[in-house]
Design a protein around this nucleic acid. Structure first.
Lengths: 339, 339
DNA sequence: CTATTTACCGAAAACGTTTTCGATAATTTC
DNA sequence: GAAATTATCGAAAACGTTTTCGGTAAATAG
């Protein structure tokens, strides 16, 4: 028992496949009576067009690909949410792939999606990524493409980002205004643009307020995980007992930092003030509640899809498309850890 | 500039499309020399088969659909992770859709996937689901189908679950063994099977240890969110100040419960012991650390896909397939909140 | 040297849809 | 009543692949 096809409907009605197809798509050159007959029979037989055939014929699948470093990540799952919601609203489905923060896997996933012939690709770079060739391949093949969050700056594609440098500046400034005199920074890995930018923002804030910058106060994460927060908290408090403020690349690590301090009776915010980044859900449930930088993750997903859609539509209509960059706003959320 | 096709290769090589296709698929009836020529040219022209055409011809897309209530959920994102990983290992891609805990949307998403003609569907029911018709439709159409976590018990499909009743029994027993005499339960919504089972496990544990069951000590979540934890903590501590233990449907709500107690100076575990469910990441970063029931979420994803794959393969080979149910083990994780 | 096997190749159908371009019949216009 | 217009339909090509089934030429067997 196969699925119903146009042919079956045509044969039982004694008309041509062409007419059936046209009737269902409401072409003007089909009489009202046959239209009615076709639609009714289609309804009765539960006809739905064979997507595979439609894809082949129309050269599009109404499916896009999304590559992110990790699904299990509060920020990314929020972005996914935004992308899926917006995609669905516009009749698109989303295939999700992970790079697991590995450049090799990321390349493989891009290859996957190109072979699959998705209508467009949205991507956030892995921390390892320091090579552009797979990205260039997407552009070369003319596949609509949007980057978000962790981007390759030099690639000429649409982008949805926040101003990491500005946000980091404000976070650091926040600590300074709360009275911190010696501020450490736990930064992200060396490659990702946003880790670099946040570091620069931190540095600029120190400069503005005439606080000497000291490289020994900068600690670099490798995997950006909870455990690194614990480890660096230990190092910082032992090596620099006079540090009174820390700006940390992301909340997950900041939560590790706080966990260590809690266990070792180092008072936050009295002894050290802490501010994280990204406003993870857990930030408001730990003790003390973590101050952080709010990043509009859901909206980032929505905007990313919107830009992709614009490009896909332009492509279909053979119109030129000029990549756009959307910069979303951030805001400091003050909680107990920096009071 | 179109993508390379078999036809192009055939024409430049002066051979037939058939031979090119066979050469690339390593058929035995193609000479080594032409095989070599074809493969080399294909390589040079960056040939990849047109998925749309392959799908149409082979009647499969190597794509499966996944419907879950929420992506932004530690448990589900872990399951997604498992499914995507296992799917990819076996050459399948995954389209993800959310039901947002709405039965209407869930039905729509099922419809979506059926129209899209995915090779199989994996689903976890929304909390609202109390109607089977869309599920039955999947079965009726003969699409390979697996349910996990929140399942429709009566549907004859493969399932991957935990023994919620047993796990809840053990969680409650854990509290009893820690000395609790009056134990409240914050349960999930009325429909989902796992909320029912966990409630039954709680009740059974009380019975076994001769603790009278009191309906007034059972509180029912509607949305299963953080805020409900806060609200019920307030109600429980005010209405029943002698309650000394609480078993809570899931960690997210338990964290809310703890947050309220922390703010109102109600000591955990001294005054009230708390145990949650699912071992969310945040459970080990809050203060006090939350005892919980560990649920193998990643593995749940892997097993779900494995069962789906079995069914998809059986279907392709026209062999009969008998749905299986896999029950995964859980374990009590004792942390500070129940010490 | 004929008969049979083996090696290699290709024509053609099929998957199900969309769309172009004629064709016919019915209707209107003058 | 002939000419032009309109309404309605369908043949056929195309999208790119896979696979069946024959066919020819070369190699082997007797």
């Amino acid at each position: 028992m196969r699925e119903t096809t146009l042919k079956q409907i045509a044969e039982t009605l004694g008309i041509s496949i062409t007419t059936v197809s046209k009737a269902l798509k409401n072409y003007p050159d089909v009489s009202a009576s046959t239209k009615k007959a076709v639609v009714e029979l289609a309804e009765k037989l539960n006809y739905t067009p064979n997507t595979f055939a439609v894809n082949l014929r129309t050269r599009e699948s109404k499916t896009i690909g999304l590559i992110i470093p990790e699904v299990v990540h509060h920020f990314f799952s929020n972005v996914i949410n935004g992308i899926i919601a917006e995609a669905e609203k516009n009749g698109y489905l989303v295939i999700i792939l992970q790079s697991n923060e590995s450049i090799e896997l990321e390349k493989k996933q891009v290859e996957h999606l190109l072979n699959k012939r998705v209508d467009g690709i949205i991507l956030s770079l892995s921390n390892e990524s320091n090579d552009d060739n797979h990205i260039k391949e997407i552009i070369k093949r003319g596949i609509p493409f949007v980057q978000f969050d962790k981007i390759a700056k030099l690639i000429n594609s649409s982008k949805v980002i926040i101003n990491d440098q500005k946000a980091a500046f404000e976070a650091t400034e926040h600590l300074i205004k709360k009275g911190c005199k010696k501020i450490a920074h736990i930064r992200g890995p060396v490659n990702p643009q946003n880790a670099i930018d946040r570091f620069l923002g931190y540095k600029k804030a120190l400069e503005k307020y005439n606080i000497p910058f000291d490289y020994n106060l900068v600690y670099t994460c490798k995997d950006v995980v909870f455990e690194e927060g614990i480890e660096f908290a230990k190092q910082i408090t032992q090596q620099h007992p006079d540090v009174d403020g820390v700006f940390i690349i992301t909340d997950l690590v900041a939560v590790g930092f706080i966990a260590y301090c809690n266990e070792n009776n180092i008072k936050i915010p009295e002894k050290i003030k802490v501010i994280g980044f990204s406003n993870w859900f857990m930030s408001k449930v730990i003790t003390p509640k973590l101050s952080t930088v709010d990043q509009p993750s859901f909206e980032m997903g929505v905007k990313s899809f919107d830009l992709l859609l614009e490009e896909m539509n332009a492509r279909k209509e053979q119109k030129p498309f000029y990549p756009k960059t959307i910069e979303l706003g951030t805001s400091i959320i003050e909680r107990e850890s920096s009071k």
